[in-house]
């Protein structure tokens, strides 16, 4: 395709991408570098059904004048990025200087909201992603061997976890794992511990969230691998069989190499998705034991005072995190691409 033709071809989607992806990103970066104006407050007498009281309130007129002057607020540079709610440079330095051991340093680090969120987010990402790929492949291989009459219904049932809205799926499971729910009660019976609660301990909550993540993510990997399996050359498989390859050897040396590009694709998507883990934390009411980068952005954007700049800074940190996480896979894809082109 000529460059010119290509340009006109891509122009509509390029325009949409600039308007809906690039510009909002620029706006987020700008917001993350500003903080609110200094609040001008005055003491007023406030009355209501429960009597009168001297209280402080914001001087609306003076604040409006300040806002009109500079609508973005005060420029704060990278200040928000390094405050306690984010990278917490000062607190980390203090923790390092005052550490009694490396474990002590990490427990102090874990007390800071962003690092706590990163700890969960990374653990979740690196445990759930490989499990999703393995489980997805196993289901695809299993379904591929089924009799044609059973394939349709099995595929439908296997896809259900992906079809169910994440928030609803996690809510349903949340009720089932309740101490009074079917899974919760069964676990109490199996472990013979009437006090066992999946919601109370941080470790069990993490395990629950990750099991949910695998349950929800596996169908996606399955669909992709199943499609890939239909293109495995039957001649190569037959040749392998004639050479005396066992079923496992066929999978290991013929099927998996053939599916490798798809595995890269699935891991890219899953890494991105899992790094943004959010719905299960809300659905499982797990905020006490687990927080992710997305859930702390959500917390900033709710409540009586909305903290746009703090949320913007966390968003930028998330984007940088996704970029770092994906870079090995992207570099590999780029090398393959160049290798083919030459």
């Amino acid at each position: 395709m000529k460059h010119r033709t290509f340009f006109w071809f891509i122009l509509p989607s390029l325009a949409a991408m600039i308007a809906f992806i690039a510009l909002p990103l620029v706006s987020v970066v700008i917001q993350s570098m500003h903080v609110e104006h200094e609040q001008i407050m005055s003491v007023t007498e406030n009355c209501g059904p429960f009597g009168c009281k001297e209280e402080v309130s914001v001087d609306a007129e003076a604040t409006a004048a300040l806002r009109a002057e500079s609508p973005l607020g005060r420029f704060n540079g990278l200040g928000t990025y390094f405050d306690r709610g984010h990278l917490a440079s000062q607190e980390v330095a203090t923790a390092w200087q005052e550490r009694t051991s490396l474990g002590d340093f990490f427990s102090r680090l874990y007390n800071l909201p962003l690092y706590k969120a990163i700890a969960f987010t990374l653990t979740y990402t690196f445990i759930v992603t490989p499990l999703v790929i393995m489980l997805g492949l196993a289901i695809a291989l299993g379904v591929n061997r089924l009799a044609p009459a059973l394939k349709g219904p099995t595929i439908f049932v296997s896809l259900l976890p992906m079809i169910v809205t994440p928030l609803i799926g996690s809510l349903i499971l949340f009720w089932m794992i309740d101490a009074q729910g079917i899974i919760g009660k069964s676990l109490q019976w199996i472990f013979d511990d009437p006090e066992l609660s999946l919601k109370a301990s941080p470790t069990l909550t993490w395990i629950t969230l990750m099991v949910y993540g695998v349950w929800h993510g596996a169908p996606f990997a399955f669909v992709v691998f199943y499609a890939g399996l239909q293109t495995v050359s039957s001649e190569t498989l037959e040749a392998a069989r004639i050479d005396g390859a066992t079923r496992w050897q066929q999978v290991r040396y013929v099927v998996i190499p053939h599916l490798m590009p798809l595995a890269v694709f699935v891991s890219l998507i899953q890494l991105m998705d899992n790094f943004r883990v959010f719905e299960p934390i809300i659905g499982f009411s797990a905020q006490a034991n687990a927080s992710s980068l997305s859930s702390i952005i959500f917390t900033d954007l709710r409540g009586d005072v909305i903290r746009f700049n703090s949320a913007a800074a966390t968003s930028v940190i998330t984007i940088i995190g996704v970029a770092i996480l994906l870079s090995p896979v992207l570099i590999r894809t780029w090398r393959d691409f160049k290798g083919k082109a030459v």
Binding site: V35, E36, E38, M41, N76, T80, D83, R84, N309
Partner: peptide, 16 residues
């Protein structure tokens, strides 16, 4: 101490 630190960070950001 955590409540105090979290509040102060937010209040500084909001200009209070």
């Amino acid at each position: 101490a955590d409540i105090e630190a979290a509040y102060t960070t937010a209040a500084r950001e909001q200009g209070f």
